[in-house]
Write a protein that binds this DNA or RNA. Structure first.
Length: 879
DNA sequence: ACGTGTAACAT
DNA sequence: ATGTTACA
């Protein structure tokens, strides 16, 4: 009996974790004092009390809990009437059954109100998550897979990330009224929109202007002893001692706890790298070190790590158990792939920065890989301090310095640029309606899901099941790429050559604009009304509703309008630097949501997956760019190139640009603006492959091999030298001398390669490993070959995300890891080929031939050019 | 757990 | 022809 009970307990906990509910022990948080301004950071579920609660923090870093007083219960929606529910014994007789009541819900797919049943339970697991949950026993259910804490958030209109206060014993939003001026401005920018749209705009607006708190926080990093080099300690086993832990706090606290035991095998010593204000506490006992670490952790509401979910916190937890700690002495709780801290929140920044939407849209792709070193180098302009990758041979002082530096730069990831990242996280919480830890853990699909589910609940729409949307799922177009679901964008074939005076016009946020302006949403596409059937999407048989306003369209439209009409504008105009930073963060957060809004509709994993809407969006996009091209040609403007949402126009007159813009606004109802001007553009023969020089001499390079990170440095260098030359070309006349300069650059690098005048690093290819090494079974690409050789020789494991550096050699496998190769064995011909393909992309367009340039070369005749004559450049006379 | 289109290179 | 990577 006892064993069974125990088993059930374990099972329940695992189930809860599966469902994403955090099991935290030792919750003993006070309620916020009356009138105190507190920020809602998470909504959680207390399984012991059977209640949801709000977890909040004040500006001093104190954490509070506010338990549900509305007697809200977990529930699902079903079409089985309440009296029939009561006839199902497994439900009605279950101790978790609370009630089944009739509810009215709007079915957006049919436009009808439905009489449905709300089946309530005492516990979220009774609704779903166990084999015998209620949702498994009913033929049709809705909204049964929404996490209970989210359900509670939406139903109570809670806004994670916003300030609250307790007033007269109950929680309510902290007063935050719009100024009359703001209200008037808002009305102005939403003039002409429907009443519902404006009402929602007023609801959203406070979320975007309310200041984010600078939450007290600390970053933690730990170092573990390893008996040999390149051994990555397993956190679940936690076999080796934690020899050092470091904290860097937003309150300025800097501390390292350092184990001074013989087992650590570290020579004692000072480190010049350790900042003076870091306190190093020497500890003689590992358990004591862990106790101190745990105590410091608990002094901060927000704990930051870089990979703490999978390493640091997991290691500390298991190590503490190994050392005889009781679970209640460890302020950490682990789920399958996440670590939580008691009485606070843990953010694993690795997960946040690895999020593609954050990497690309919020940071413009500033970092490519996801190591702490690479991200901090790109964003903070400084990385990890130089120490050997293994801790072997370090003195205690060096270890402390290394350990502290990691904690410090982890903290800095949240403090740089006026705490940009914290602000971003708060804005994402508010828009997505998710708790802080969920924001950091989930991707754009999860954020959008939550935001749109909340909109459904607010409007009393039934959230459809994916299967309900199957009727809208028929795609009509055929994708060009094998394996894709529907056709995408158009790329206009470039007119190869050099063109002076080019204007680039583009449709800003093309797909979101289409979704808003053409009312695209799962319920409005191919709607049931006969009178809408003539409202066709060009090039398809899809039609769009003219009666209902699409819920997805509204959501996308609001975010787009706020970004373009308010925050981007204000960011530009603002004079107060702090205000400017805020406007910029908001527009970036909105950009993250807006840019991914179309993509999720075409993602099978998105609950409102509607490929027909995604297809209609791209079809409309194709229509927009082709119509624009036609119009431009009718006006006598040559269209040199175009991609998805842009057209490159040759020598257009200013009035023509205005005229085209007005035409687009009027006939397509999408904004078309001049995005860029180029003094000249060089188009290769390939699509997505050109370079443009702006009037200020800045060179934009798109898609050219010379820009790609896998191209060897020696080739890139020559490529960049050519760009330097091109940047200084002002008109057609100057091209002739520029061509001579370029020829010299090509000859020079050619001879450098031929005469082996390079370092190994200069000739290395750098390619990222995207999968585990063992999973490359179909083919073995060169970087995988090199990586396997590296592992075989050094024993150091290589995993996904790591950039493999290798060189091409004669004989053997044809490649070697850069670290294991020598200049003698380099296969020079391979590099000449790489140089050729990279430079030909430019040379061809300039009317130069790579072969001719190197063919006429006599090795001895251009040694003189090696003294760097090509770097300095004036108007073309000297050459 | 966003999408499709284009290109290069190796297998 | 296909797999893999990088980019727009």
């Amino acid at each position: 009996m006892e064993e069974e009970a125990e088993e059930e307990e374990v099972y329940e906990q695992e189930e809860r974790e599966e469902e994403g509910e955090v099991v935290r022990y030792g919750e003993a948080l006070p309620e916020p004092p009356e009138g105190k301004k507190v920020y809602l950071l998470s909504v959680e579920y207390d399984a012991q009390k059977g209640k949801a609660y709000l977890k909040l923090v004040d500006e001093d870093g104190n954490v509070y809990a506010y338990y549900d007083r509305t007697n809200h219960k977990p529930y699902l929606i079903t079409d089985v009437p309440p009296d029939k529910i009561r006839e199902i014994p497994q439900i009605a007789k279950s101790k978790e059954f609370v009630d089944a009541i009739r509810v009215r819900k709007y079915n957006a797919l049919t436009g009808e109100y439905l009489q449905l049943t709300k089946l309530m339970a005492t516990d979220p697991l009774a609704i779903g998550g166990k084999p015998n949950s209620f949702r498994e026993m009913l033929p049709r259910v809705w909204e049964a897979k929404i996490r209970y804490t989210s359900c509670y958030t939406y139903d109570n209109g809670l806004l994670p990330g916003m300030p609250y206060m307790v007033y007269d014993g109950s929680i309510r939003p902290y007063p935050n009224d719009l100024t009359p001026d703001e209200e008037a401005q808002l009305r102005r920018i939403f003039e002409g929109e429907t009443e519902d749209y404006v009402a929602q705009a007023f609801k959203y607006f406070p979320l975007l202007i309310s200041a984010a708190p600078d939450v007290k926080r600390a970053a933690l990093d730990i170092e573990v002893y390893t008996p040999r080099e390149n051994l990555v300690p397993n956190p679940e086993e936690a076999k080796f001692a934690v020899i050092s832990t470091a904290f860097s706090g937003s309150d300025g606290r800097k501390v390292v706890y350092l184990l001074m035991r013989d087992e650590a095998e570290l020579p004692r010593g000072e480190s010049a790298d350790l900042p003076r204000d870091v306190v190093v506490e020497q500890v003689n006992d590992e358990a004591e070190l862990l106790r101190k670490t745990f105590k410091t952790m608990e002094e901060y509401p927000l704990l930051l790590t870089f990979n703490g979910d999978n390493f640091d916190l997991s290691y500390l937890y298991h190590r503490a158990l190994n050392l005889g700690f009781r679970k209640d002495q460890i302020p950490i709780s682990l789920s399958r792939d996440q670590a939580y801290v008691m009485n606070g929140w843990h953010l694993d920044l690795y997960k946040f920065f690895k999020n593609a939407a954050i990497q690309i849209y919020a940071f413009g792709g500033a970092y490519k890989g996801f190591t702490l070193d690479e991200i901090t180098k790109a964003l903070l302009k400084k990385g990890k301090i130089a120490v050997p990758p293994a801790l072997h041979g370090l003195t205690t002082g060096q270890l402390a310095a290394y350990n502290f530096n990691d904690a410090e730069i982890t903290l800095e990831l949240t403090t740089f640029q006026d705490s940009l990242v914290m602000k971003l996280i708060f804005l994402i919480m508010r828009i997505s309606r998710l708790s802080i830890e969920e924001v950091v853990r989930l991707g754009i699909s999860g954020w959008t899901r939550s935001a749109i589910f909340a909109a459904h609940r607010e409007k009393n729409y039934l959230i459809p099941n994916q299967s309900d949307l199957a009727v809208k799922g028929t795609v009509q177009s055929k994708a060009i790429i094998k394996g894709k679901k529907y056709q995408g964008a158009i790329v206009i074939k470039p007119t190869t050559g050099v063109y002076f005076d080019v204007a680039v016009m583009d449709f800003g946020s093309l797909y979101p604009s289409i979704i808003k302006e053409y009312n695209l949403s799962y319920e409005t596409i191919d709607c049931p009304h006969p009178q809408c059937r003539s409202n066709k999407i060009p090039g398809t048989d899809h039609w769009v509703c003219t009666i209902w306003q699409g819920i997805f369209s509204t959501y996308v439209g609001l975010i787009r309008d706020f970004r373009i009409k308010w925050f981007k504008k204000k960011a530009k105009e603002a004079t107060d630097p702090q205000a400017k930073v805020w406007y910029d963060v908001v527009q970036r957060a909105l950009k993250v949501f807006i840019n991914a809004s179309y993509g999720v509709l075409g993602a099978e994993t998105f609950p409102l997956y509607t490929p027909s809407v995604a297809e209609a969006t791209t079809a409309m996009g194709r229509y927009a760019i082709t119509q624009t091209t036609k119009k431009a040609q009718d006006m006598g403007i040559r269209v040199l190139y175009g991609d998805t949402d842009s057209v490159f126009l040759y020598k257009p007159a200013e009035e023509q640009l205005d005229q085209l813009s007005q035409w687009a606004e009027k006939t397509l109802r999408i904004g078309l603006e001049v995005d860029k001007r180029y003094r000249y553009v060089v188009f290769s023969e390939l699509k997505k492959n050109y370079l443009g020089v702006t009037p200020s001499g800045q060179v934009d390079v798109k898609g050219l091999l010379g820009k790609k990170r896998n191209t060897p440095e020696i080739v890139k260098k020559a490529f960049n030298q050519i760009l330097q030359v091109l940047a200084n070309v002002k008109d057609e006349k100057e091209f002739e001398s520029a061509k001579q300069d370029i020829k010299k650059i090509v000859k020079d690098v050619y001879s450098r390669i031929k005469s082996k005048q390079f370092s190994l690093e200069e000739v290395s290819f750098n390619i990222m490993l995207n999968k585990n090494l063992s999973t490359y079974t179909k083919t073995t690409p060169q970087h995988v070959k090199a990586a396997r050789m590296y592992v075989a020789v050094t024993g150091k494991p290589l995993g996904p995300g790591e950039v493999i550096s290798f060189v091409k050699v004669r004989g053997g496998e044809g490649v070697k890891p850069t670290e294991l190769a020598s200049v003698d064995e380099i296969d020079l011909d391979k590099y000449i080929e790489s140089l050729r393909s990279t430079l030909e992309q430019i040379l061809d367009a300039l009317g130069l031939s790579f072969d001719e340039i190197i063919g006429v070369t006599d090795l001895s005749s251009f040694i003189q050019f090696k003294r760097g004559a090509m770097v300095k450049r004036g108007p073309a006379t000297s050459l």
